[in-house]
Every structure is written in C-alpha cells, then in structure tokens.
Design a protein around this nucleic acid. Structure first.
Lengths: 130, 130
DNA sequence: TCGATACATCGACACTCGTCGATGCCTAGC
DNA sequence: GCTAGGCATCGACGAGTGTCGATGTATCGA
C-alpha cells in the first residue's frame, strides 16, 4: 500500500468550503470530505445554466441592454433561434436564479438577478477575482 | 480541437464585453452584438466542465488536499465512482484547463491550474466577488 | 366581441453526457 | 523478462439536453 502524499496541511479552500480530506492515498476515507453531495448538485445546477453558448449570449445581451432588461423577441433574432427555444433557455436561467421575469402587457422582460453572477463567481474564487 | 489550458480571459462589462443592443423591441438588429458565437462556445465549454456535481467535488478535494494535488485513487472512494469514471471526469477538466496532470511513477497527480478558476470567476463578475 | 400579437407549453427528435465493465498501456519491483 | 498495480481508453447503455413545429394562453386594439 503506497503512501505518496500525506501531509495534513490545509490552505484556504478555493472552490467552496471543504471539510476534511487527508487520506494518505487510496484509503477508504469514505466520509463527507469535499463538498456535500447536495451542495455540489445545487452548484452544478447553476453552472449548468451557464454551460450553453446561447444562454451565455442571452446573459450578455440582457446585461448590456439599456435598462438591463430584454424581451424575448430581442433575443430570437440575434441568436438565430426559434422563439420556443429562447423561451426555454430563459426559463432555465430563471429557475437557476440568474434572471427574473417581469411581464408588462404582452411583453415579458427579463433582467439579471442582482448579485447572482457575483455569488457564483465568489464560489469559484472566494477571495477575489482581481 | 486544440487544448484550451488557461485561455485568455477578459474582464470589463459583466458577463463579457458586449457592444450595442438597444433595438426598441422586436427589431431585426441582427448584427453580432453580444458574445461572438465562438467566444460563447469556448466559455460554455469551460462552464460545462463545472456543470457536474462530481466534478465540483473533485475540484474541492483537489484544492483542499495537502499540496493541492491528488491521485485518482484518492477520488474514486469518496465519490463512490468507478476508476474509469473518475479518469473521465479528470480528463474533461484537464481539457477545460482547470486541472493539470503530472505523472510520477505509477501515480498520476492532478492539481489546480493556478488562476483558472479566478479567470472564470472574473468572467462572471469582472470587478469583484463580494 | 373578435382578431392580432407576444409568449409559454407540449411532444418529438437527434444528439450529448455520465456511468460502467472490459481491456490495454506503462511503470516499478522481482 | 515477468508480474502486479495504477491509470487511460474503448464500447455500450440509459438519461438528459437543445432544438423545432404545433398549439395553448393572455393581453391589447379595433
């Protein structure tokens, strides 16, 4: 049984707080080091909302629009996507907590959730992002 | 496809620089506002590497390990995943430029690419992260 | 009241992704 | 050389995802 690295020392913990995690190597530590499964899943769900080029472009368009809000029809054209597809992407991002929907008359305006992206960024690099 | 590994990142404008995009509503602006399709795809690819709970946990374990490096066998157990699956996830993150692989003897040690997560975080929230 | 418009939802399809067992490669030790 | 062990790769399978056309819903104007 080899034991390569095994120096119990911890720094801060990028990528989200962690608990314990210093099994020598190939030892059934088994416990809940690292992210708790539930937390990892919640985080992954939010990153999944960012894991699509068209959704990133939607975020880009929304955040750069005059009042930081955009209606569906503004997105369909530049993205070369059908209206149902755009609605689908928007719904995903609303459910991920990245966008909010406000219906005014016939139009639905989408805008960024303040701090949503920041908090995700903080998860990636807790201290700062230069 | 070439290997990304620490791609350049831009800051400024939230979610990445954008140009103009203020058509009244439902006007064929058509141009390339927003992210360029290629950039959006590259970014999405990196977020996709984060869009899985097990990969997030791998990052967590790696970053919290003594020397910020871990071998495959350290991951298979706590994640309850088979060794091929862990290797698969690691490969994805290496190709995304998040991890680096260093083989020493029989073992393969994975460690975080310095600044990789920070640059991704900066893409989300250019100025700071809380 | 009726038609037009903006958007959401539904059903379907092709494609990708996460996972596994089986197998191959490479290094260390005998 | 030969064997053992750690890891990568391959092939396959089920589940999930992005996209679309068709249809439903709600609001506004005539």
């Amino acid at each position: 049984m080899p034991t390569p690295v095994a120096t119990p020392v911890r720094r801060e913990s990028p990528v989200v707080p962690v608990q314990e995690s210093e099994a020598p190597c190939c030892v059934p530590s088994h416990g809940q080091e690292s992210l708790l499964a539930g937390e990892a899943e919640a985080l992954a769900a939010r990153f999944k909302a960012l894991a699509d080029p068209n959704r990133l472009r939607i975020l880009s368009i929304v955040s750069s629009s005059p009042e930081a809000e955009t209606c569906v029809c503004d997105l369909s054209e530049p993205l070369n996507l059908g209206q149902p597809t755009v609605s689908h992407h928007l719904k995903i991002m609303v459910e991920a907590g990245l966008l909010t929907r406000e219906k005014r008359g016939v139009w639905a305006y989408y805008s960024l959730v303040p701090g949503a992206l920041d908090s995700l960024a903080a998860t990636l690099s807790p201290k700062a992002s230069r």
